[in-house]
Design a protein around this nucleic acid. Sequence first.
DNA 1: GCCCTATCGTAGGGACAACCAACGAATTCG
DNA 2: CGAATTCGTTGGTTGTCCCTACGATAGGGC
Lengths: 144, 144
Amino acid sequence: MADNTPYAPARIRTLPSWLLGRAAARGHRLVGEALATEGIRMMHHAVLSAVAELGPLSQAELSRSLAIDPKDMVAIVNDLQREALLTRAPDPRDRRKNTVTISPAGQELLLRTEQLGDRANAELTAALTPEERAQLVSLLARIL
Amino acid sequence: MADNTPYAPARIRTLPSWLLGRAAARGHRLVGEALATEGIRMMHHAVLSAVAELGPLSQAELSRSLAIDPKDMVAIVNDLQREALLTRAPDPRDRRKNTVTISPAGQELLLRTEQLGDRANAELTAALTPEERAQLVSLLARIL
DNA sequence: GCCCTATCGTAGGGACAACCAACGAATTCG
DNA sequence: CGAATTCGTTGGTTGTCCCTACGATAGGGC
């Protein structure tokens, strides 16, 4: 039997918004599956990575730097704190804030999840040369 | 007082999966807002466009060509049929299938929504030259 | 013709990301 | 000091994707 499945219509397939959606879905699935082996999710890993890189900071700063909704940040920090991957302590200089700091266990996990994330991204961009991947990253950064 | 907001950590910001997610979110928001002025949503517009381009076809074929879940397709076709933008009729040659056909009203609406979608995509890629945009489209198509 | 398998449309539910509105506590600014 | 703003938090909604399941129908092997 012939393959009579009609594939993505050209009108839609050439729209950046459509391609971005599909590519993001694939990336999300690949990275999600990879990180699942360490029992962590994308946003949690992103927060952990941001705390490690930017040092102790408030939840609001985290929300802004990662473009995550403050509401969602509460749940993420709750989860990470419950697993002792970071600490949340009231900021003595501004009692509205929580100072979020990565823990040694968080550092350790981050080493592994970063590798998993990198590998998933390598798979995601497997069809591209390193130069093309850099180009893609550059182009994406500019439309943000 | 200086701007002390920490911005996207480099470790995350250079991951294609992260950039794709953010860019897709922006594209989704822009296109969604644009199409909302015609009272239609992204997936509905995509289905309408696919039916117009590929001609009458079944819901399963639509689902595959657009990578939309069959369950979600049911709801979308329901909506579009309710607004008389397409017709859904049993296929006499295979009574399991529904033959989906775009209506004149659907064609007419599609003309407007395609323009809205194009304009939103132009805004999405406003920071890019036409060559760069074509490059982005090409790179995205290759990682799919 | 008859079983077995596959497909189609439809329905249920759930995971996850993104976003919006509001509120008390605390801080900062005019 | 009073007003406006920020912060953390709780409450929702929406959209996309995934898995399961079921009756009806179709096709292949025998």
